[in-house]
């Protein structure tokens, strides 16, 4: 138990370090001003969310191959944490878009595909709640997780075909000055640590719920019709 508290405390401390780097190490953007500081957490949480959904994908594929309960719990934990980070990405992105683009939302490729990403994995979590717990829920969710992961790049690519406004990847183009890059990489590392700790804690919760569904407060399954 203490391991989880230590992990959580370390994650919080690291995020505070990252906040320090964002506000004190990174210089203020010449063009956009202080709003640009949203960039560090915005991009980091987007990448962390993709990584979480990667965990869901791998967990799903492994589960369908050998029905491993570990893979399934990992997928469950990844989906929940991924939805949290996608929410953070979307909200911070909107806050950033309002002063810079003049609107909270535009139907650009990256925005559309991120929203679809959020909807798909929120659906994934719903399948987990509504399907009969156990083998059925795990199988169905694995299929949803795999299809969702494939669908998002397709949506992104097909919208890009017609219209886009979101800036491209600045890291790869080496457009960031060194201090900004440092703050960004630090934030990214801290966010990944946070995501890892959250997945570990969620994994533990899922394990406890699997062992004692009633004690852990899982919703009662209302069987309104004959078992299939």
């Amino acid at each position: 138990m203490t391991r989880y508290y230590t992990g959580a405390a370390a994650a919080v401390a690291l995020m505070l370090v990252a906040a320090g780097a964002i506000f004190f190490v990174a210089p203020t953007d010449g063009l956009q001003g202080p709003v640009q500081r949203i960039f560090y957490l915005h991009v980091s949480s987007a990448v962390a969310a993709y990584a979480c959904f990667g965990v869901v994908l791998i967990g799903g594929v492994v589960y369908l191959r050998n029905e491993s309960a570990t893979a399934d719990r990992l997928a469950r934990a990844g989906a929940l944490v991924g939805v949290v980070f996608t929410t953070v990405t979307l909200v911070m992105g909107m806050l950033w878009a309002k002063p810079i683009w003049g609107t909270f939302w535009t139907w650009d490729a990256r925005l559309t595909s991120t929203l679809v990403l959020w909807i798909i994995y929120a659906g994934y979590l719903l399948v987990r709640r509504l399907a009969e717990p156990g083998r059925q829920a795990a199988r169905f969710a694995a299929v949803v997780g795999i299809f969702g992961f494939i669908d998002v790049p397709i949506v992104h690519f097909s919208v890009t075909w017609w219209r886009t406004q979101h800036p491209g990847p600045v890291i790869i183009n080496e457009a960031l000055p060194p201090q900004m890059l440092l703050a960004f990489l630090l934030t990214m590392a801290c966010t990944f640590f946070l995501a890892g700790v959250m997945i570990a804690i969620r994994y533990r919760i899922e394990m406890l719920m699997d062992e004692a569904p009633m004690a852990a407060g899982a919703p009662m399954v209302a069987q309104s019709e004959p078992a299939q």
Binding site: V127, V143, G148, I154, V155, S158, A222
Partner: peptide, 30 residues
Amino acid sequence: LFAAMVARVRAREVLLPLLTLPLWIPFVIA
């Protein structure tokens, strides 16, 4: 595929659109 899935799930009327519509988006875009 998703109709077959939700046929065995509670609240299927709600879940089918939630799962299917986002995956249909590529078809709606193109």
